[in-house]
């Protein structure tokens, strides 16, 4: 009971801070909008997003087609809504898995023996040294383009981000007085991890994850745009852009409305993440 209260108080405090950040509110609204449309996609779409009606191709926005149609006469609005589900799935799955792996590796690196720490750091550096897009393209060639491939790639390239952050946090905690005295009193490693280190690294992880989501969304859309992501005709935002790019001289609408949700979503998550960091990270919290 007391625990729930504490958590509720925390949420209320976050909200109280967030309320004073107009950009954070805008971000929150966008995030709610995108998540809502991903959850309610089936109810929100007007027509089947893959249904062709060639006669209606390259239509500008109208009452029947709120955002116009593409080169096959598919309704862009319905495709954008359906695409939000793909984007959010990729983002949430990839970020939570890589954050989980990063958490484990980071803690291991922070409290483990020195050789383990060094090899982890080398692994992180190596993974980070791949030019992201080139690496992604090479992997796609090998295992074929699909949503799973994209998620896999994103997991691999995001691990160093989480791993490094957790390692730094763990090291700071390990050297802090209260952990040192626990060690002196003979506390076991698992106990230290579970009771002290884990709860303390969760905050930074959450902030990082919020900031990583837009990167993941951009990555998924980017690879799909190149034709190496979600297979057409599945409506991903990147696929809408790909179609729009091919027919850029016929109609600007697929490009405009395929790009807008990507920009909107990345901005929304970033603004929200920035405000949350100001609220949650005590070191960065503004004196007020």
């Amino acid at each position: 009971m007391a625990r729930t209260h504490k958590r509720l108080d925390g949420l209320i405090e976050i909200w109280a801070h967030l309320r004073r950040e107009p950009l954070g509110i805008v971000g929150l609204l966008i995030v709610v909008l995108v998540i809502g449309s991903a959850l309610l996609a089936d109810a929100l779409i007007l027509v089947d997003p893959v249904k062709l009606s060639i006669r209606d191709k390259f239509m500008p926005p109208s009452l029947a087609y709120p955002l116009g149609t593409d080169y096959l006469g598919r309704d862009i609005y319905s495709r954008v809504i359906a695409g939000s589900r793909i984007a959010m799935t990729a983002a949430l799955v990839a970020v939570s898995i890589s954050a989980g792996i990063g958490l484990v590796l980071g803690i291991a690196s922070g409290i483990g023996p020195r050789w383990l720490d060094y090899s982890m750091l080398l692994l992180f550096d190596t993974l980070r040294s791949f030019p992201v897009v080139m690496f992604a393209l090479a992997v796609v060639t090998l295992i074929g383009p699909s949503l799973t491939t994209i998620i896999l790639i994103i997991i691999v390239i995001s691990i160093p981000l989480f791993g490094r952050a957790v390692r730094t946090q763990t090291l700071t905690l390990k050297n802090s007085e209260f952990i040192q005295s626990e060690i002196a009193m003979g506390a076991s490693l698992p106990r230290l991890m579970g009771v002290h280190i884990l709860p303390n690294v969760l905050g930074p992880i959450m902030i990082l994850a919020a900031m990583e989501i837009p990167v993941v969304i951009a990555m998924e859309a980017g690879l799909s745009f190149l034709g190496f992501g979600v297979r057409p005709p599945t409506p991903s935002w990147g696929n809408i852009l790909n179609d729009g790019f091919k027919y850029i001289r016929n109609s600007p609408w697929p490009l405009i409305f395929g790009g807008a949700p990507i920009i909107l979503t990345t901005l929304g998550f970033t603004f929200l993440g920035e405000s949350l960091r100001d609220v949650l990270d005590p070191r960065l919290r503004k004196e007020s």
Partner: peptide, 12 residues
């Protein structure tokens, strides 16, 4: 500027 994906900026 940081958040907007470069390829969407390029397309626009």
């Amino acid at each position: 500027f940081i958040a907007m994906p470069a390829f969407v900026v390029g397309l626009y």
